[in-house]
Design a binder for these strands. Structure first.
Lengths: 160, 160
DNA sequence: TGACTAGTTCGGTTAATTCCGAACCAATTG
DNA sequence: CAATTGGTTCGGAATTAACCGAACTAGTCA
């Protein structure tokens, strides 16, 4: 356990806590994900992950599979080596933006839904906050556009 | 319990589930918040909230206080009426954007931190994903700007 | 003063999350 | 075949989250 530098350990914990919330991951999954992001190219073996995190085989297995199911982590292999080398998905930033895009679309639909509800069941009094809600919707649309163009640009770069 | 229309009940549940995640709230807190957002002007009494949600006094008290501590909910009173009337904060959309702005700033700092870490401890091999990371940072900065201008515009409207 | 109303606090129950160890499987190697 | 390696699966323990009921406080009103 604790096979890497204290600076890295500290970063793993710090960003790990952050990732638990934003990506909605269990503590261990967040740590694993951060480890892969901090060293995205070479890949880590199962045993390396155990060694860095100090967690059990079963926990690492479960969380690692979960990360792969959600396209956050992938693995590659080397000829003549039975082990898998796990790394963060080559497109994890793009995937992240795609997730956020879904979120924004959901938010837009939601704000429309509330508007419709008020228009139907709340006729007389829903005009009061209309101005702010409209601004909010404009913000969401701008945010959607920003996401879309960035995703497109990334697609061009991340051909590989 | 269940004192309002089935359409509203359904909306409360639907948006409630959504709010649990995006605002990181307990199920009951999310329901309460949604109730206030769907009817933001008149305010709801403690007993109305209990009646709509079907939850206990203690749970409602706790979650309601939590919502007030995080500026999502506020209350007003009427002369000669001991009860409080709870409603969503007059500036909850703006507060929401402010929270998101903090998030984005955090993300920018984080991406810089990772960059610094790689520059210091990972010199030779961190150039590979640099292009995508740079795009991502540009996205974050645009997103930050979008938030800031929207917040500013909202401030002008929500003088009240 | 006693009864009522509006809301809070505390202790405990239930349910879900997170993780572990032990047993296991499947491929490889001697 | 037996032993080793790389990883999975299952049952359960420990921790945390979510909620409830009962007892309580602090104002109000008769």
């Amino acid at each position: 356990m604790n096979c890497c530098s204290p600076e890295k350990q500290k970063l793993i914990e710090e960003i790990g806590v952050h990732f638990e919330k934003v990506h909605n991951l269990a503590p261990l999954a967040a740590r694993i994900y951060v480890i892969m992001i901090l060293c995205p190219n070479d890949g880590h073996t199962f045993d390396e992950i155990i060694s860095i995190t100090g967690a059990s085989k079963s926990s690492v297995s479960t969380q690692l599979n979960l990360l792969m199911q959600t396209n956050k982590v992938e693995y590659f292999t080397k000829t003549g080596d039975r082990r898998r080398y796990f790394r963060s998905s080559r497109t994890y930033l793009k995937n992240n933006l795609l997730d956020q895009l879904e979120q924004v679309k959901k938010d837009i639909r939601l704000i429309e839904k509330i508007h419709d509800f008020n228009a139907e069941f709340n006729k007389e009094k829903f005009e009061k906050t209309g101005g702010v809600a409209l601004l909010y919707k404009e913000y969401l649309i701008a945010q959607k556009k920003n996401l879309e163009t960035t995703i497109e640009q990334m697609s061009k770069i991340t051909i590989e």
